[in-house]
């Protein structure tokens, strides 16, 4: 058993790119679901259009890196409009169905042979991160203590990534304690009551969808920047589902909930996965092969998610009282 690898990968996951990317995706979902009560199950689509927006702008259209970022942001904003206009006036479950369908449309289009010249088919696009890493101020070397640490490339990525995560948290904090945030929370409780008090509910829902979508799209950028590539199948429904698990784990409608949730989620996910893989490799679990570790790990996330919602819906740090009030 290679415990050292298990422990280092686990620690790295807690502060590594996974927590940055999924933390941002979850901050977006938290704005939608936690604060506004919108069931956006297409968060992966926001990440995908942003990641592809950047990748296609740089590799296919030969635009500079910053233009790629602008295009990615614009794509996410347009997606929010396209999703929001037909569904935000309807019952909550329609939004869930439509967003999950839209995410699937986006994925299918990106992986299609028909558009291979633009999006690169199932291989996706790579080779758009040069400008980002060219800005790296860190000299080459190892940053960290003992076996824990990152090279200059990763540390630059993490410095930018965590700054953006904290900035997003600050924006959420400021907005949610303002009257604007109050309207969102009120919509989550009962949108008809809010309408009866003279607030344009549709407009607020749209603002929420857009804000959460744009923060989710930052997650798409960072995914592409770390991995150096975007592939369509990364942005499947599982990714959105992980973001929901993270939000509920950390406690919905809490500013730092998604960040803490992402760290806990990835620690568990990586630790369980690596430990299982090691156990199988060393013959402790004879009925399993290493390729079966993947699905078991995902199944455990599903199981954990169900148990969390049934037993502790307020998340690890949530207040039971708040949830009890809502259980009508």
């Amino acid at each position: 058993m290679d415990w050292l690898t298990i422990i280092t990968t686990t620690v790295h996951a807690a502060i590594g790119w996974e927590s940055v990317v999924y933390g941002l995706a979850a901050i977006g979902v938290n704005i939608h679901f936690g604060y506004t009560g919108l069931l956006n199950f297409g968060q992966a689509a926001f990440m995908a259009v942003a990641g592809y927006g950047l990748a296609v702008a740089v590799t296919v259209m030969n635009l500079p890196f910053w233009m790629g970022i602008v295009i990615g942001l614009a794509a996410a904003a347009i997606l929010a409009l396209l999703l929001g206009i037909p569904t935000l006036q309807l019952r909550a479950d329609y939004l869930a169905i439509v967003t999950i369908a839209a995410a699937e449309i986006v994925r299918l289009v990106f992986r299609s042979v028909y558009f291979k010249d633009i999006f690169g088919g199932s291989d996706g696009r790579r080779g758009f991160t040069g400008d980002f890493y060219a800005m790296n101020p860190f000299p080459p070397g190892h940053y960290g203590i003992g076996p824990f640490g990152f090279d200059e490339r990763v540390i630059w990525f993490l410095a930018v990534g965590w700054s953006v995560v904290l900035l997003s948290c600050l924006v959420v904090y400021l907005l949610m304690k303002s009257p604007w945030g109050r309207v969102l929370k009120a919509i989550r409780e009962d949108e008809d009551a809010v309408r009866a008090l003279g607030k344009n509910v549709f407009s607020y829902k749209m603002q929420s969808l857009m804000l959460g979508g744009i923060i989710g799209c930052l997650a798409g950028f960072f995914y592409g920047l770390y991995n150096g590539a975007v592939q369509p199948d990364i942005f499947g429904t599982e990714m959105t589902f992980f973001a929901y698990t993270i939000v509920i784990l950390g406690g919905a409608a809490r500013v730092f909930g998604p960040v803490v949730g992402a760290m806990i989620f990835w620690v568990l996910f990586v630790f369980v996965g690596n430990t299982l893989a090691e156990l199988v490799r060393n013959g402790f679990i004879p009925f399993m092969t290493t390729t079966q570790v993947g699905p078991i790990r995902y199944a455990l996330v599903g199981l954990g998610f169900i148990l969390l919602l049934v037993i502790r819906p307020q998340g690890i740090f949530g207040d039971k009282r708040e949830i009890a009030i809502n259980a009508r």
Partner: peptide, 25 residues
């Protein structure tokens, strides 16, 4: 609005709130 305090419920009713616009909020 169950998970808002009584006072927040009341504040919500006020019209023409400057803090209800996204940027100023």
């Amino acid at each position: 609005l169950s998970r808002l305090t009584v006072l927040e419920n009341m504040r919500l009713g006020a019209q023409k709130q400057k803090g209800e616009s996204f940027w100023r909020a």
